[in-house]
Amino acid sequence: MKILAVCGMGLGSGLLLRMQAEKALRQLGLKADVEVSDIGSARAAAQTADLILTTAELAEQIGQVKPPIVTIRNFIDLNEMVEKLRSALPGGQA
């Protein structure tokens, strides 16, 4: 399982997304690799990802890709991340 955290530059908000996703995965008892990508390389990186995490407006810029895109509004709200990963990931409902 690979999750791709996409932000503009690949080092600010995407990093926050990765940290929050890793915390949320631990809370859900799920295992996945979380990688950060900048918007420029997101479409290529999406080829090997199972899920994409990003913001609503960057999701529009990524466009149509194979894996589902989950958009996060509040990057410091762990609860939002947990709930969205819970419904998006197989095994997350358990």
Binding site: C7, G8, L16, I39, E57, F75, I76, D77
Partner: peptide
């Protein structure tokens, strides 16, 4: 310029912006 190019996605939470560019 980052915001002009990519939009206000740097507003990462209500009331909080993480302003940055690349190295």
């Amino acid at each position: 310029a980052t915001v002009e190019q990519l939009g206000p996605y740097i507003v990462i939470a209500p009331g909080i912006a993480l302003a940055h560019s690349r190295p």
